[in-house]
Design a protein around this nucleic acid. Structure first.
Length: 225
DNA sequence: CTTTGGATCGTCT
DNA sequence: GACGATCCAAAGG
C-alpha cells in the first residue's frame, strides 16, 4: 500500500533469538588467510561465559582483515614483538591489545603457526547477557551503542588484556566463536570497504560489514577525492 | 545529522 | 618522544 509502513527490519528492535548453542568452531576454520576468514565470521556468535555463569553473546556484524608482513596497517608488519607474539602463533587464539591507552580491542588469529594474520572484531548485535553488557557500558545510551565498535565490543563482553592468547576453540568458559542455528546473513547484505582509523594502506577494501544491521560501527569513509 | 578536540598510556623509534 | 586498528561530549546545521 502507499501508506507509510514502519521499518520492520526486526533484527534491530529485538535481539536475535539465540538458542544458546555452544559449538565452538574448530581450529581449521581459523587456519586460513584473514581475507577468507573475515567474511565467514559475519553472522557467527561471539560468546563468553563468565565465572558467575552469565553468558554474554552477540552476532558478529563487522570485521576487518589484517595481514602480516605484507600489510603496512598490521601490528605484525614489522615482525614479531612481545605485544604481537600471539599473532605469529597458531590460529584460533584471541589477540587483545590496548588502543589509545584506554580501550581493549580483540582479534581472531588466523593463518598458520609462524605466519601472522588476524581479523579485528568490530561490532556485535547483542543476543544474550544484555544486562551485563549495559553494566559494563555505562555510557551507552541506546542498544546499538553497546558493541558498535572494537573498544565497545570488548567492554560489552568483558574482554581484557588477560584474555590475550586465549584459545577460542576450547570447550568451557572464556571467549568463543560459535556456529549457531541462527540463519546466516545473505551474501547480498555483506558489503566491503576500506578499513577504519588507519593511515597506512587505507585504500585496501578489507573491512566487511552487514549492511542490514544497525549495530555496525560508523565510519564509512568518504569517497576518494 | 556532522564535525571537532580531548582523554590517556603502552609500544616502538 | 611520537603515535596510535578509539570513544565520547559538546557545539553547530
Amino acid at each position: 500500500m502507499s501508506a507509510s509502513t514502519p521499518s520492520d527490519e526486526g533484527s534491530d528492535l529485538r535481539p536475535p533469538s539465540w538458542k544458546g548453542d555452544w559449538n565452538p568452531l574448530p581450529e581449521r576454520f581459523f587456519a586460513r588467510g584473514p581475507l577468507e576468514v573475515a567474511p565467514d565470521l559475519l553472522g557467527l556468535v561471539l560468546a563468553r561465559r563468565d565465572g558467575g555463569g552469565v553468558v554474554r553473546a552477540g552476532r558478529i556484524v563487522e570485521v576487518e582483515a589484517y595481514l602480516g608482513r605484507d600489510d603496512p596497517a598490521s601490528h605484525a608488519y614489522r615482525g614479531p614483538t612481545p605485544r604481537t607474539a600471539v599473532m605469529f602463533g597458531p590460529p584460533g587464539r584471541l589477540y587483545v591489545y590496548r588502543s589509545y591507552g584506554m580501550h581493549w580491542c580483540a582479534n581472531v588469529v588466523c593463518a598458520s603457526d609462524g605466519v601472522a594474520g588476524a581479523v579485528l572484531l568490530r561490532a556485535l548485535e547483542p543476543c544474550a547477557g544484555i544486562d551485563a553488557m549495559w553494566a559494563d557500558r555505562p555510557k551507552a545510551k541506546r542498544p546499538v551503542d553497546l558493541a558498535s565498535g572494537p573498544g565497545k565490543l570488548c567492554a560489552a563482553l568483558a574482554i581484557v588484556g588477560s584474555d590475550n592468547g586465549s584459545l577460542l576453540t576450547a570447550d568451557g568458559a572464556g571467549p568463543r566463536v560459535i556456529r549457531t542455528s541462527l540463519p546466516p546473513f545473505p551474501p547480498a547484505s555483506i558489503v566491503v570497504g576500506p578499513r577504519v582509523g588507519i593511515t597506512a594502506a587505507a585504500d585496501r577494501p578489507w573491512r566487511f560489514r552487514v549492511t542490514t544491521s544497525r549495530h555496525a560501527s560508523r565510519g564509512d569513509v568518504r569517497p576518494p577525492v
